[in-house]
């Protein structure tokens, strides 16, 4: 092996002691074992890249022909009739339902999740912290199909009268107008989604809150701040990027949640009129695809669903990227 020269990555420069957490490639040798093992590790990483690339490529390749034959506007039409001689399909309804339900979920889950994280890190008595954190983590372990069942069979009958009450008193407000849908509504799906993503918000927020430097906290307390003032002046500002990225990851999860939503949505009749009401029904991207899995009969039809899946992919990708960027920026600050 010849000497490595001219490594430009300035960020890799070690301290003069030579302490550096990463191992350089020079630690490995030209031995067969090293070549095989290092090769296998590299290959695995490359496989991951290839898989992700293929996912994008296959979805695009199969969506494009269907989109070319589409006689409706893909982004602005509410029609979904991908079969037949003259396929016509648009995703507006799914986009609205998906985004609206996820937004409701965020509005509910983020404040509660942050509250729970603050409770677990700042307020709970020490003996309760471990068990309580485990309890919240358990929520994350429950399979989403179970949330779906519970929402469908147990929670919906309890929720329905509440929704009727809201419609009676606040129905004049466009977002809360009655629509006559008897099954699960956007708002209801939002509530169930909020329960599902709560552990994500809590887990990540808890992590960053727990990392608040003791010096900051003690600094505030030494000035005579109450516990809440200490949290407001040191814990919350320190944890804000963490909370934002937690919310984004949770949003990504909510957007793509499939089975629970599939159990709960009420499909809209063809040609039903447009309403802004959150008490309307409607399919999300994921539920539409899942509900029609049996219909993937011809490439054109399948392509329409794949095109819808592609939009969902892009949507979650954007949301997750925002989360990553926020996390990275925070890392840059703390390191």
């Amino acid at each position: 092996m010849s000497t490595v020269t001219g490594v430009s990555a300035a960020d890799e420069l070690p301290q003069p002691d030579g302490k550096k957490p990463r191992q350089g490639d020079r630690a490995s040798t030209g031995r067969i074992g090293d070549r095989l093992f290092g090769g296998a590790a590299t290959l695995s990483g490359v496989i991951v890249i290839v898989l992700v690339t293929l996912i994008g490529a296959f979805l695009v390749v199969q969506a494009v022909p269907a989109l070319m034959n589409n006689s409706a506007s893909f982004f602005t039409s509410r029609v979904w009739a991908p079969g037949g001689e003259q396929p016509a399909f648009g995703i507006l309804e799914f986009l609205w339902t998906t985004v609206a339900a996820s937004t409701v979920a965020m509005l509910l889950a983020v404040p509660v999740g942050v509250g729970v994280a603050l409770f677990l890190t700042q307020y709970a008595p020490t003996w309760l912290r471990g068990p309580a954190a485990t309890l919240v983590d358990l929520l994350a372990a429950v399979p989403s199909i179970v949330y779906g069942l519970w929402g469908l069979v147990t929670f919906f009958p309890v929720w329905k009268p509440v929704q009727n009450g809201i419609e009676d008193t606040l129905g004049w407000f466009p977002l809360l107008a009655p629509t006559g849908i008897s099954g699960g509504t956007i708002f209801f799906i939002g509530i169930v989604l909020s329960i599902m993503v709560l552990p994500i918000v809590t887990a990540l927020s808890r992590e960053v809150f727990a990392q608040t430097p003791t010096a900051h906290k003690e600094g505030a307390l030494a000035l005579g701040a109450t516990q809440w003032e200490m949290i407001r002046t040191s814990v919350l500002p320190f944890g804000r990027p963490g909370v934002i990225s937690a919310a984004m990851l949770a949003l990504g999860r909510a957007l793509g949640e499939t089975i629970a939503v599939t159990f709960l949505v009420s499909a809209l009749a063809d040609g039903s009129s447009w309403t802004w009401s959150l008490f309307n029904g409607g399919e999300t991207f994921a539920s539409k695809i899942a509900n029609n899995a049996a219909e993937f009969s011809n490439p054109g039809k399948t392509g329409a669903y794949i095109a819808a899946g592609l939009v969902l992919f892009v949507l979650t990708f954007i949301v997750n990227s925002i989360a990553r960027v926020v996390i990275e920026r925070r890392k840059a600050f703390t390191e």
Binding site: V48, I49, L51, V52, T53, L54, I55, F58, L59, V61, Q62, L249, G252, L255, G256, E257, T258, F285, A286, I289, A290, F296, T302, Y305, I306, G309, L312, F313, T316, F317, V319, N320, R324
Partner: peptide
């Protein structure tokens, strides 16, 4: 790409394998 993969909705993964 691992980050992308961790954010992929299960329905999209399923669609890919189907495709």
């Amino acid at each position: 790409t691992v980050d992308i993969l961790s954010g992929i909705p299960s329905i999209v993964a399923a669609l890919f394998i189907y495709a």
